[in-house]
C-alpha cells in the first residue's frame, strides 16, 4: 500500500471505538452513547427480507432513525415509562470480525459481526448480524455518521422486539 493510500485511522482504532460503544450500550449509558454520533447521523435496522443495501425510503424497516429520532429513542429508553425495558434487560454486545472497508476524505467505512444477548424475566434472547458503519474522524475522535445493523435472522422470532439499542 502506497503512502498516499495509507489510512490515518487503523483497524485497531476502529475496533477500540466499537468496543467502547458496546460497553456504553451494555451499561445503559445511552446519553453518552448518543454523543458518539454526528449531528446528521442515522441508525438503521432493516427488516430481514430486504436486500442488505435496501433504502428505508421505499422499504419497511424495523428502525430508521435520523439524529432527532435517535435522540428521542434514547430519551424514551431512559424513562421508566418505556415499559418494554423497565426494569431494564441485561445486555451483552459481542463485536467481532472488525474490518475497514474504505478510508478516504475523512470518512471511514467499517464492518463488523455482532451477537447481542438480552436477558430479562428468565428469558435469554440472541440477535445476530453484521454492523456497517460510516465513521468520520473529528477532533474529538471518531464519530458515527451511520450505523446499520443487518440482522442474519429469519424475522424476530422468538425475540419479538428491538426495544434496546443493537
Amino acid at each position: 500500500m502506497g503512502a498516499a493510500m495509507k489510512p490515518t485511522v487503523a483497524r485497531i482504532d476502529v475496533e477500540e471505538f466499537l468496543f467502547r460503544e458496546a460497553d456504553l450500550l451494555d451499561e445503559w449509558r445511552l446519553p453518552e452513547w448518543l454523543e458518539l454520533f454526528t449531528d446528521d447521523a442515522h441508525y438503521y435496522v432493516p427488516s430481514t427480507d430486504v436486500a442488505p443495501d435496501a433504502s428505508p425510503d421505499n422499504n419497511l424497516f424495523y428502525i430508521a432513525d435520523d439524529r432527532f429520532r435517535l435522540g428521542e429513542r434514547v430519551a424514551r429508553l431512559m424513562k421508566r415509562t418505556a415499559h418494554a425495558e423497565y426494569p431494564r434487560s441485561k445486555l451483552r454486545h459481542l463485536v467481532s470480525n472488525v474490518r475497514l472497508v474504505s478510508a478516504a476524505e475523512g470518512e471511514i467505512r467499517a464492518k463488523a459481526s455482532f451477537v447481542v444477548f438480552r436477558a430479562k424475566d428468565g428469558v435469554m434472547d440472541q440477535y445476530v448480524g453484521s454492523y456497517r458503519y460510516r465513521l468520520v474522524a473529528s477532533e474529538a475522535g471518531l464519530r458515527i455518521a451511520e450505523k446499520r445493523c443487518n440482522l442474519d435472522m429469519d424475522g424476530l422470532r422468538p425475540q419479538g422486539r428491538i426495544s434496546f439499542i443493537l
Binding site: 435496522v45 428505508p56 425510503d57 421505499n58 422499504n59 419497511l60 424497516f61 424495523y62 428502525i63 430508521a64 429520532r69 428521542e72 429513542r73 424514551r76 418505556a82 415499559h83 418494554a84 425495558e85 424476530l156 425475540q159 419479538g160 422486539r161 428491538i162 426495544s163
Partner: peptide, 24 residues
C-alpha cells in the same frame, strides 16, 4: 413514500416507539 414509512416506524413494529410496549 419516505415520510409514510418514517411515520410507520415511529409507532409501529418491533423497533417502534409503541409496539414494543404492547408486546411487553
Amino acid at each position: 413514500r419516505k415520510f409514510r414509512l418514517s411515520n410507520f416506524l415511529e409507532f409501529l413494529g418491533p423497533g417502534g416507539f409503541a409496539t414494543p410496549d404492547d408486546v411487553e
